[in-house]
Design a protein around this nucleic acid. Structure first.
Lengths: 193, 193
DNA sequence: ACAGCATAACTATGAACATAGTTAGTTGAC
DNA sequence: GTCAACTAACTATGTTCATAGTTATGCTGT
């Protein structure tokens, strides 16, 4: 169900065509909730059917046409209501922890490789998020710019602030993963002598 | 696919009936990879079909019967091979980050509630994992005991050590979440004046 | 005697997600 | 002028997962 709210979040900023949704999604809310286009197109149609969006057809070139989705008052209300409802937490399901728990089954070097890959993955993510925060702070992020343009000036600090806070949380997680994997490398050295 | 390897991990310790798998699963590998029974029963049958398990029927009472699944050499090999393959990382998909990024849409008190719920959830998880680590360290965890009983003594430190390492990683994550949510509470106070 | 609980093993259904492929118009470079 | 890249919008298929319900046996306490 979260995809629906991710799309509503995007469309509170401005009406977008399906294709525009894809492109904006990938550069903003898609960083916190990934989804492929094959999931987005049908979901947009379902949301229109459910009255959360209003699709307005526009001509495209001489023959083609495209549909621009406008969020409806019901859509705004559904989003606000979701925002005001405390989330349910999903049960644990992370392959790295599954693997770590049985690491005695791996060849020591493969175990080390996995830890190095873990560090590399989370380092690169953290870097990406640091850049995202920088672009949010100096307002150079184009998606943020369109959102701010449509919002009253007194909300700008809030809008940018919560996004920065989100990416900081993701960096914190990445840091915890990196430190854990480093300790994992030490543990492998200690146990596989 | 991870469910399959979670089940193989469990069955490397001893042969189990479907129902036993459920019960053991919930108290061991299920903490790192949750799955409901409706997923486990059919997966066990698929694994048997794929030659990873060998199901031996046993009488149960006077009329009923049950099937005990033994891991085959192919099953052991499949598990070891998975353990030696570096994992692919799934894209970000966490509802709390999605929500945090648009927190300006929530009522301030509901935003605070969400942060408090986040702290409560991760505190309780961390506590559970601390207890798990204690039971692994003093060898009072019954699932660990059966696993150790079937393994050579020189592997005991490894087997317990990697499990403790795993739960430590989960505690680290929980701690990071708690600290992030605390900062979130401060931020809400600052922004929603 | 039978209630209640644990054991045992499914089945059904729909939603969510991954992966891959398809069709067709538009724009810009060489 | 034609070819690649981009815009636009799907479609197909299979897997994974959540939620809920079903059927039946055995054991224990009152």
């Amino acid at each position: 169900m979260s995809l629906r709210y991710a799309l509503l979040a995007l469309l509170t900023s401005q009406p977008l065509t399906g294709y525009d949704v894809l492109k904006h999604f990938e550069q903003s809310v898609g960083y916190v909730w990934h989804a492929p286009d094959s999931q987005i197109y049908p979901e947009l149609r379902r949301m229109e059917k459910d009255g959360l969006l209003n699709g307005v057809e526009e001509p495209w070139g001489t023959k083609g046409k495209k549909k621009r989705y406008h969020i409806t008052p019901e859509g705004v209300e559904a989003f606000r209501s979701w925002m005001n409802t405390t989330l349910d937490y999903a049960r644990e399901r992370d392959p790295i922890h599954l693997k770590a728990a049985y690491l005695e089954w791996a060849d020591p070097d493969q175990a080390r490789n996995q830890m190095h890959a873990h560090i590399a993955y989370h380092s690169s993510r953290a870097q990406q998020w640091r850049e995202m925060i920088a672009a949010l702070e100096d307002r150079s992020n184009p998606i943020l710019a369109t959102r701010l343009a449509a919002a009253p000036k007194e909300d700008w600090t809030k809008i940018a602030g919560y996004k920065i806070f989100t990416y900081e949380g993701m960096i914190d997680r990445a840091k915890a993963e990196i430190e854990w994997a480093r300790r994992g490398l030490d543990l492998i050295d200690k146990l596989e002598s």
